[in-house]
Design a protein around this nucleic acid. Structure first.
Lengths: 70, 70
DNA sequence: AATTAATTATTGTAAAACGATAATTTCTTT
DNA sequence: AAAGAAATTATCGTTTTACAATAATTAATT
């Protein structure tokens, strides 16, 4: 699955707790955990938006397309 | 809605026809059109992936978080 | 050892991505 | 101006899945 979710990386960089982000975004810690680990198959823009807002980042920081070959 | 979908921009830059992209991605032109215009509320990663693949771009090229103020 | 933080698991539901199709509109090209 | 191609809009239906809610388990911190 070449779309890589690197929310975990950004969280670590920012030193932000999942709990705090979840609270701000308005989703459960359980779901945020799944998202962090790339265990979801998509994302709603309003969720992405609030994450970017809180982490002061861009979607491109959270999502990367990684080609298989090369 | 501060997540801006700029697929239309990238398509224009690449001079790619919606029809061709739709065909490659495997979604209907109708749905691609909605996506192009930011009229969807989310996206599945497998769709995003194929778009990035065909357009040789990153999610960050297609999605931008734009703050309201400032 | 306690407390806190994060992950995993389960079940349920509502939202919406997407299909299929067709009609309308816009854009090209002759 | 016609014709053709490309794109948008509109309906309706279906299936997927993001998310909630909750609880239990497993890391980390202190």
């Amino acid at each position: 699955m070449p779309i890589r979710v690197r929310l975990n990386v950004v969280l670590a960089e920012r030193n932000v707790k999942s709990k705090d982000l979840a609270e701000y975004v308005g989703i459960t810690e359980a779901n945020l955990s799944l998202l962090k680990q790339g265990k979801v198959k998509g994302i709603r823009f309003d969720t992405l938006e609030r994450i970017c807002d809180y982490l002061d980042c861009q979607p491109g920081d959270l999502l990367r397309f990684e080609r298989l070959s090369e």
